[in-house]
Design a protein around this nucleic acid. Structure first.
Ligand SMILES: [Zn+2]
Ligand SMILES: [Zn+2]
Ligand SMILES: [Zn+2]
Ligand SMILES: [Zn+2]
Lengths: 137, 137
DNA sequence: ATAAACCTTAGAGTTAACACCAAGGTCAAG
DNA sequence: CTTGACCTTGGTGTTAACTCTAAGGTTTAT
């Protein structure tokens, strides 16, 4: 299988596949005489692993770690794998909390502004941001 | 006030102030003979506005838009201001939803892995990512 | 035999919000 | 008069995950 075929099969770009190769996520199984990358079922499976890891939120770096473990599983423990997962989970939760804080502030601001066509001279959003005490009132 | 003083007052770096100037968020009120940036109360207030906007989640670009409106409020409407706010709110909510999806998947994965010291040969996290049908069972 | 479709490498561009650095000018204190 | 603290410009580096370009070689179909 050449790079274009694999890309079409997976719904990614050939650039992406070359990028993953550069970043040690996926190497072709061989090269043709003319230097074209060649892939087979093993690579297809591996890309599916990568894409699934991406779906659940792992970064490419984290996915790469998981792949390292996957290639010789018996040299690694469940502890490691779960560690990576929990660490990511922490990060995701922290980011959610931060965004929820934004969400709260923004919806509070939006609720108080009439949103009408009249001039913004007394817009409560602007005044809330101007006031030193922008959180209350 | 020179740039260092203003920076100390606000708890930001002088680099940040110069960066904001480059990006049209805050210009000094004047320059000294020797070319030093000079700021006064107006700039202090404006920086506080910027920092508050940042606190509620606005990007610098969005903050810049808000500042444009603020400088001549009567040429703009509440509608515009609320529009920016609601648009941001949408974005934040979308991002939260995406992260919550990750959170769900990750916690499901973590829950099923024993996390023990034994080899990862049968780690349910890895097998879940390997299986085409990684979401169920 | 030639055009279309495919492939190669190497490198630059994108976005956000700065941090850091070099080389040099300025200003107050001792 | 010389440190040391401060300031200037202009530039590069950071992170993530690609995307795009240039300049060229290969394959396949007509
Ligand atoms: Zn209004
Ligand atoms: Zn309003
Ligand atoms: Zn286990
Ligand atoms: Zn496990």
């Amino acid at each position: 299988m050449k790079i274009g075929e694999l890309a079409r099969l997976l719904g990614v770009s050939t650039d992406t596949l070359r990028y993953y190769e550069q970043h040690n996520l996926l190497s072709p199984s061989a090269r043709s005489e003319s230097g074209y990358r060649l892939y087979d079922q093993t690579q297809l499976k591996q890309m599916q692993f990568i894409l699934r890891a991406k779906e659940v939120g792992f970064s490419l770096k984290e996915t790469s770690e998981l792949l390292q473990i996957k290639v010789d599983k018996n040299q690694h423990s469940c502890e490691e794998v779960k560690g990576i997962t929990l660490q990511k989970l922490e990060l995701v939760r922290a980011r959610i909390a931060e965004l929820q804080c934004f969400e709260k502030s923004l919806s509070k601001l939006a609720k108080r502004c009439c949103g009408g066509q009249e001039s913004a001279d007394f817009c409560s959003i602007l005044t809330a941001l101007e006031d030193v005490d922008g959180t209350h009132k």
